[in-house]
């Protein structure tokens, strides 16, 4: 994957605008339960963890899916669910180590992040910059910069 949704947990304030926008874009509905990205809040820590698909190299959801509905595209790195094949057994929901794979009770099929076809709207609407859709090296570069600045400050 040339780009990924890079999450800076320390910047997230837990406003969950991303959840709302995601469910709106994909389902025409405002429902956190139908959002691909989910924010886990730890109110007593003031810490918020947005969770979205990691597009794993060897995704457990792909392995566990008994119907072959989830596939990883070797070229683009995309992990996608084919609703025609999905039998709705929710094994992917159980297998995903991040709790990302989600399930629509209405449609009876699983769903997951599709990066909005290349322009993720959660990132578009995230105002804190906790979510960024950037190439991996840039995300890491930003992290390195921040670490370096910290060292500089304390040094």
């Amino acid at each position: 994957m040339d780009k990924l949704i890079f999450i800076d947990y320390h910047k997230c304030v837990g406003c969950a605008t991303c959840e709302m926008v995601c469910s709106m874009v994909h389902e025409d509905i405002c429902s956190p339960a139908l959002s691909r990205i989910r924010v886990v809040r730890y109110p007593t820590e003031a810490f918020n963890v947005p969770i979205t698909c990691a597009f794993c190299e060897s995704p457990p959801c792909v392995s566990v899916c008994p119907s072959g509905a989830i596939t990883k595209n070797a070229d683009s790195g995309d992990v996608a669910i084919n609703p025609a094949l999905c039998i709705g057994c929710r094994q992917c929901v159980q297998a995903c180590p991040f709790g990302h794979a989600n399930f629509s009770l209405d449609r009876g099929t699983a769903f997951k992040c599709d990066l909005c076809g290349g322009s993720p709207q959660c990132v578009e609407f995230c105002w804190t910059e906790a979510l960024q859709y950037v190439p991996l090296d840039r995300a890491l570069g930003g992290k390195r910069d921040a670490a370096a600045r910290n060292i500089l400050k304390s040094g």
Binding site: V21, M24, E27, I29, C30, P32, A33, Q121, F125
Partner: peptide, 21 residues
């Protein structure tokens, strides 16, 4: 709650949200 509210016009709503932000 586990449901949600349908949006009458998603594109217009996104527009309004963006504008509001």
């Amino acid at each position: 709650g586990s449901r949600g509210r349908n949006i009458y016009d998603t594109a217009a709503m996104l527009e309004a949200v963006k504008k509001g932000q």
